[in-house]
Design a protein around this nucleic acid. Sequence first.
DNA 1: TTGAAAGCGCTAACAA
DNA 2: TTGTTAGCGCTTTCAA
Lengths: 345, 345
Amino acid sequence: MDLKKKRVTIYDIARALNLTASTVSRSLNNNSRINEETRKLVIAKAREMNYRANSLASNLRKGKSQTIGIVVPRINQSFFANVISGIESITNERNYNLIISQSTESHKKEVKGVNTLINQHVDCIIISVSAEGDDYTHLQNVIDHQIPLIQFDRVVEEIESVKVINNNEQASREAVEHLIASGYKRIALLAGPQNLDIFRDRKAGYIKALRAHKMPVSDHLIIDTGSNNGHDADFIRKLLTLPEPPDAIFASRDDFLALGVLEVANDLNIKVPEQLGICGYSNENFTRITTPSLTTIDQHGVDMGKTIAQTYFDEIDDKNDGTAVEIKTISIKPELIARASTQRR
Amino acid sequence: MDLKKKRVTIYDIARALNLTASTVSRSLNNNSRINEETRKLVIAKAREMNYRANSLASNLRKGKSQTIGIVVPRINQSFFANVISGIESITNERNYNLIISQSTESHKKEVKGVNTLINQHVDCIIISVSAEGDDYTHLQNVIDHQIPLIQFDRVVEEIESVKVINNNEQASREAVEHLIASGYKRIALLAGPQNLDIFRDRKAGYIKALRAHKMPVSDHLIIDTGSNNGHDADFIRKLLTLPEPPDAIFASRDDFLALGVLEVANDLNIKVPEQLGICGYSNENFTRITTPSLTTIDQHGVDMGKTIAQTYFDEIDDKNDGTAVEIKTISIKPELIARASTQRR
DNA sequence: TTGAAAGCGCTAACAA
DNA sequence: TTGTTAGCGCTTTCAA
């Protein structure tokens, strides 16, 4: 039948009502310079004709896309998914769209993703960089194209942009101090990949906490775990069967590692929290319902996302006073969630 | 300084090289009707001038956006995040963009999201509907606008579109038969919200498995759990302290519920899997590392996403032979992951 | 309050 | 192989 039916445009509506496209456009966009009667007429007709605006055309004309681009290492990592979810909740209110791409930790894909977003004329680019790579000209490129750039979590220090980060060092320090306050004396650290700032910061917090309490920092209690390779159990077991094993483990990489520790402890008949305290990182959903429940740190991903989006909107709302874009760093305070796995009686 | 610097267009490049915009366009788009020398020249100049194509303009002109829209209930639910990740891995290869929105289970937001995508002239809309709502004119609207629609997981039967689903009934049946084969006799079902097809199907599979093995279906062993409200522990405890408690529990809603069962069982000193078998649903990451590890069902979210995207591309690749769009239903077979929590010796 | 007209940046027929 | 020209659908200035 009408397989070739073209989409209805404002010209079609104008023709049907004996008006011009400008009038239709004004009516549809709540322009003030329009007769209320006319507006009603147009809106009714538009609905009747099943009209759908063409944002491509209007964005082209207006020179902006009402779209924000996001690049993250992995969409399906709960922290990033939470951040995206937070961003979305704010952008949705403002009728902004989100274009999302993931680098899967590949620098090449990240560069490609960023370039696509520039081509799409997005109004802002939000990024958390991949673990791989040390060339950041693609980020500089964003700035050169006058597109607001917001980095979060994994940020590149030397690129001048708004940065929204967790205070990893402080959170880590608080976690270790909590362990100390619970009476643990030999606290081991399972540190994440040290090429990323966030994990270096967590390690620094651990060391600062120990130093502040005049406790020794023993190298053999600090394990560089690398990324999750599914064989965490091995070094955990080794650690727990040392002649002088730790009485607490801070799995600063993530909660999955903490759950692994809990498992090995169960296996070795080590009582948690009595003989061993365990603290994870990220407040994954499951930490709430393990036995014992796991102490962890909530990064407030959703809040972080909301903050990121809000920062962008504040900025464009401010632009009216001609203020220059402020290059600030916003720190979201992660929260220690103290649960049973560290509550020694 | 040059705060008002306009973006470089193909006209700027043309002017710099004493060519026309068409020639530049052809060079940049690997058109065959172009001199190889000219192409090199143009590409070099484009790089030098830091040219970025304007996809808005080219999409408007071409009448397609190289963009696929996705609407899911929640971006940060692992299954959906996985599906999106799978879709992204395919669309990325093809240089398609993804616009993602979440309904947060609100019908109103879902409708708005879909309409925005129509306005954006996306080439395809992929959706998993929210739990709320029973009016699907917005989906019909997509079809009316000749935009390919693909539904997945939570699909609306009466809307004619490609559907990609899990065979929940079969997976559920296999899980229960696995429990039966392991020697469990009184198998309880924790059923999810029954207003959604997927959970009804899982219940049906449970009943079919029992019937097929001539085992009684007892109403008091079937608990309608509703959505996760954080108070799962109560009815689990009630169930496990019945005069005649079940010797296996199929937490067909999700793995979090299964983990909850494991916790309560530990609490009551009920041995898993010896006295109680537990099976969850979704193969969340943590199920692998609990003690004992949890038997569950993998929905293959990433694969599902890949299949969805591939289906779309197959369709448009086929369009050349003028074949009509095929309204098919593709079933992704979920996989039973049998682990320690159901391995009775 | 409405209309006429130009143009956002690009592509693609058609012409040369 | 390159150029000319029109137009995708919309917004917006200027004029009426």
